[in-house]
Amino acid sequence: MSRPVSYNLIQKPLEADISMAPMPDGHQGEGFFATSLDSVIGLARKNSIWPLPFATSCCGIEFMATMGSHYDLARFGSERVGFSPRQCDLLMVMGTIAKKMGPVVKQVYLQMAEPRWVIAVGACASSGGIFDTYSVLQGIDQVVPVDVYVPGCPPRPEAIIDGVLRIQDLVGKESLRRRNSENYKLLLESYGIQ
């Protein structure tokens, strides 16, 4: 059974999530300094994303491979994997989140220090995947706001790195003021946080 086609070359455009959009450049009156501080800090944050692997199942095993020698997530400055939510910047939810687990995810998210980002790795975390059953949460965006989704069941390490790169883009562009903005508060409120 050989396959006549090799690649899907069509680049699906990235959906810029509206709630995630950075503030306009040079926000009134703050001038050059604020903008460049933003970008410097963005650069720093971007290169020092400490992940919190919330690895529950299969995708966690692929995350091991991502951390492993062959793919080495450490190149992006993210090898300090912490399991303490206080110290981490990126919540990587990998694997099925059952309804029993949902509150735990939310708890971990609440314990994280701002700025925090969430990446849903794999079909289960993003949408429930094949587990359309009574016990599985259909996507963690039911309980916490998600910044980047990575499809695949489980995604290849390349795909996970791709997701982290997307997060890096997001982090690098984010305004320092975003976390105090009304938009963000509304977003959190919609999840019943604060």
Partner: peptide, 20 residues
């Protein structure tokens, strides 16, 4: 849940949004 009369999916669930 595994008794036959109960469906696989929880019918009362609100966490699933088909549009997604």
């Amino acid at each position: 849940p595994l008794r036959k009369e109960f469906p696989l999916e929880d019918q009362t669930r609100i966490d699933k949004d088909d549009e997604m």
